[in-house]
Design a binder for these strands. Structure first.
Lengths: 254, 254
DNA sequence: AGTACAGCTTTACGTAGCGTAAATGTCAAA
DNA sequence: TTTGACATTTACGCTACGTAAAGCTGTACT
């Protein structure tokens, strides 16, 4: 079956503009362009569009959808879990807003006269609170919010077995790393095995693994005192060692 | 006290860009511009900015804020109540989204293999449902969504006394209108009194009264069968009569 | 006086996801 | 052949600003 924009649009219940837009942003390209310049979609495109719309219905951004439906290595379930966290955050904020609005309505209805100054005072306090809630941002700004963000909020969503496996992996990383540190060569087999274990461990937290992000995280272990302290706990220098091993593992220039 | 952009921005905790933007959209203009073209704000502007930011914190759009803080006739409490309804709607949708996302996560985790087709089926159903939920839109499209929208959802938020008053007014409108209809002149004093009562009644539902909207609503009473049936219940022709009276009252060309 | 630097100005592009023209080419039916 | 339905690309509009860029003003220091 082949479809023109209009046909596909009607079939899927979207506008033709939407299909052209998806073409433009390379989310969904037509199978071919005919001699008149018309977009022609085939069965594969229909199926892909179904997927796209499915995720769109869940409120996922088109950018994320692109990753989900195009990158085969992408962990869709993890992406959805992240998305859920975002939605829950949104709802929390909404609830706060609603509470504030209702408070205000109650105030005006109760004829409690509140001067603008007073309003502003409360509002300023709120602003300050907001700022303080954002306090954790410095690190995020430094290493890209995703790096920190994604990992932090993931733990809660693991199943029992996943949690056990991830704990086991973490211990194995530590043990292997300590062993590798003894010979002092980050390029050694055992050090590389530690890097590989570290990658496996990471994969439980990240929805998409990339060498760049892995290498960046390794550098962060050295730069951030708290992480550094954790890895250096038994042997000072371990954080740097791990970084070097990971950088070799990921093929980063040293 | 006089402030430059920077000073006011720091005082209120916003960016200078924000202040320039508010100037641009005529939400908050500086008190004056000095000889060098600098924006100079005075005490009145500080106070107004406080109000603006207050409503902004509640998630009100700048457009609505403009109406609230500039139009003295504007009913701020009603506006807030509308806003609350919107927020509650948003939360409902969010909850639906979250439920769907969780369902999907559960499915993928439970290893229940769901073909894309099947996913799409459910999704299509959802689309249809959504469309059906939007069924009431024809009238809204015809008369501007606000006209219908705002009035429908307002009842729930009235206090006991407000409800009584609004019921009394509605009855008075009906009685006065019936009386006026007897002499058949929509320009007569009594017909104009009916129009005025109708306006008072309306004011309980609308956050901002305008002659145009009032006249439009009157026309709608004639065009929409349900409304027409309601007004014509005892005397056919009453809907048209009311429309004419209101059009004269609001000064619309006949 | 010269200069550095902070602070002000306007202009304008970018953001997400399309809606909505406008101007113009293509195809099948009457 | 004309009409009307459908296709194309280009481009502005929407929200609430962030973020340069390019240039003028005001104050302090040498």
């Amino acid at each position: 079956m082949e479809y023109t924009v209009q046909h596909l649009a009607r079939l899927a219940g979207v506008s033709t503009r939407t299909l052209r837009y998806y073409d433009e942003i390379e989310l969904l390209k037509p199978a071919r362009i005919n001699s008149s310049g018309y977009r022609i979609y085939g069965q594969a495109e229909v199926d892909k569009l179904q997927q796209v719309l499915f995720y769109r219905e869940l409120g996922v951004s088109l950018d994320s959808i692109k990753e989900i439906v195009t990158a085969p290595s992408f962990n869709g379930a993890n992406a959805l879990k992240e998305h859920r966290e975002q939605l829950l955050d949104k709802r929390k904020q909404l609830d706060l807003l609603i509470a504030n609005v209702e408070k205000t309505i109650a105030l005006t209805e109760g004829r409690i006269t509140m001067t603008d100054k007073e309003k502003f005072e409360g509002f300023k306090q709120q602003l300050i609170d907001d700022n303080e809630n954002n306090y954790g941002n410095e690190i995020r700004e430094k290493y890209g919010d995703d790096t920190v963000n994604k990992s932090n909020q993931k733990l809660k969503n693991m199943t029992q077995e996943e949690h056990e496996e991830v704990t086991r992996l973490a211990n194995e990383v530590t043990a292997t790393l300590a062993e590798a540190f003894k010979n002092g060569d980050p390029a050694s087999d055992i050090a590389q095995k530690a890097a590989d274990l570290h990658k496996q461990w990471l994969s439980y937290y990240w929805s998409e693994y990339s060498k760049e992000a892995h290498a960046g995280l390794a550098q962060m272990y050295v730069d951030d005192e708290r992480f550094k302290a954790h890895y250096d706990e038994n042997q000072p220098g371990t954080a740097e060692f791990l970084r070097d091993a990971i950088h070799i593992y990921t093929g980063s220039k040293k």
